[in-house]
Amino acid sequence: MKIEETTSAIVSEFESFDDWMDKYNYLIELGKSLPLIDEKYKVEANLIQGCQSRVWLHAEFDGNLIHFTADSDAVITKGIANLLIRTFSGQPPQEILDSSTEFLKEIGLTEHLSPTRSNGMLSMIKQIKMYALAFKTKAAMGN
């Protein structure tokens, strides 16, 4: 599935909620159902800076696509990680670099979660894009 298809699916899922409680319940559910990260990747090097909760993000590149896994000690943050992984995992580096994160505004997450420094959502996106750039460069050098 293309990134835009995923993001528009996410947007319509969130549109069906009419109050913040439903939205957060859904996020919490997403947090609880985030596929487990391999414990060996929950290391200092994979920690994302600038979050109030701890967030680990691990990336693997199979030569074409990047696969992300993540974990956090806060459930809401895990829910957000789940959305981001659903959007970006299994995509080629260039697609990730070209993608827009406007959909997060549309589902009211940048607006409703506390500012960037504490929720780490933007830090996660930045890290995802950094991995994409790094793997893209690596692939280019390999050719």
Binding site: Y24, Q52, I76, T77, S114
Partner: peptide, 20 residues
């Protein structure tokens, strides 16, 4: 419950507390 999770919900109840 992680303080960040708790703080997010408390905020939505209109209450300003600090977490972290």
């Amino acid at each position: 419950i992680h303080p960040y999770d708790a703080g997010t919900i408390i905020d939505h109840m209109g209450i300003a507390v600090r977490t972290g």
